[in-house]
């Protein structure tokens, strides 16, 4: 009797969160999956069950593959670089430094700016002839570059912006984690004769691994989720050089109104994210928790 009452109370306490989670997370996933098995309704023609036809179209769609490739390049470039920069900045602002607060704030500022504003600022930086970057390059006789307009530089230009924006955000997590490490451990390491790099490699970085995992999960999600700057800056141009998966979904879903196909693309994105998260939490997590 008592046990069942406990179960009742427990259930009731869980209910609000469960309702929200179901309504806004699981229900949409289920309906998206169902939608992806139907054709897109057009005019008087209602949606018809077509099985996995949408997925077949997708696998034959060169733009989809281009978007996938771009997204993986984007992720593998932005994640390690922004995390390494975040760690370096965190180590710097965690040390005794004059104007520490000012430096911390400066590093964190890109994070609090809205992505749309950031994208507009960088649009000017990248502008040919009068943009900041081009003006600097002109000094070396390398001017006249249209970074966002050339297929071979457009994605790299976006990667730079993302690193600039994300590093400060990740720095905050590293900084918090660094401050959790007992200073006695660092003293012990230095007393044992470990150099800065030895301490960093053998003590600090291993102790930061749980944070690194957390940040990398966030970074991966971010790499597949951020599209604001693409919408503002390139819209996937030139020649789909900057089309990322989510941006393609957005284009297909709300540009061409091919909602059935967009649903199928969304499922692919979901599966990719789920697999990455499972690997990170299921495998890596087991190896880095010491406490």
């Amino acid at each position: 009797m008592k046990a069942s009452r406990n179960a009742l109370y427990g259930g009731l306490l869980l209910l609000p969160a469960a309702v929200l989670l179901w309504t806004f997370t699981y229900q949409p996933i289920v309906t998206t999956f169902i939608d992806s098995l139907y054709s897109t309704p057009r005019g008087r023609r209602p949606a018809a069950f077509i099985g996995f036809d949408q997925y077949e179209t997708m696998f034959a769609d060169p733009v989809f593959w281009k978007a996938m490739l771009n997204n993986f390049i984007y992720a593998f470039a932005t994640i390690p670089l922004s995390m390494a920069m975040a760690l370096a900045m965190a180590l710097l602002v965690n040390s005794k430094l004059r104007g520490q607060a000012a430096v911390r704030m400066a590093y964190f500022t890109p994070t609090i700016l809205p992505m749309v504003a950031v994208a507009n600022i960088w649009l000017f930086f990248y502008a040919p002839d009068y943009g900041l970057v081009d003006r600097v390059l002109q000094l070396f006789g390398l001017g006249g570059q249209n970074f966002l307009g050339q297929p071979d530089t457009a994605l790299a230009a976006l990667i730079v912006i993302t690193i600039w924006k994300e590093a400060g955000f990740f720095m905050i997590f590293y900084l918090a984690a660094l401050q959790q490490i007992s200073p006695t451990l660092m003293e012990a390491a230095s007393l044992e004769g470990a150099s800065f790099w030895q301490t960093l490699r053998r003590v600090t970085i291993p102790l930061l691994m749980p944070t690194t995992l957390f940040i990398s999960v966030n970074a991966v999600i971010g790499a597949f989720r951020l599209v604001d700057h693409i919408v503002v800056m390139t819209k996937g141009a030139p020649d789909n050089a900057t089309t990322l998966l989510l941006f393609y979904i957005y284009q297909v879903g709300f540009g061409y109104w091919d909602t059935g196909y967009a649903a199928a693309l969304t499922m692919v994105l979901l599966v990719i994210l789920a697999v990455i998260a499972l690997v990170q939490f299921g495998y890596v997590d087991k190896r880095i928790h010491y406490r």
């Binding site: 006695t184 451990l185 390491a189 044992e192 470990a194």
Partner: peptide, 28 residues
């Protein structure tokens, strides 16, 4: 401190939590 040719036992022991006993002892 590393040049003073001395060793120290800390009050909180300051053992590296991610290393084994052997790893901790031979760290220096």
């Amino acid at each position: 401190s590393s040049k003073r040719n001395l060793s120290m036992v800390f009050q909180s022991y300051a053992l590296f939590p991610h290393m084994t006993v052997a790893g901790n002892i031979v760290f220096g």
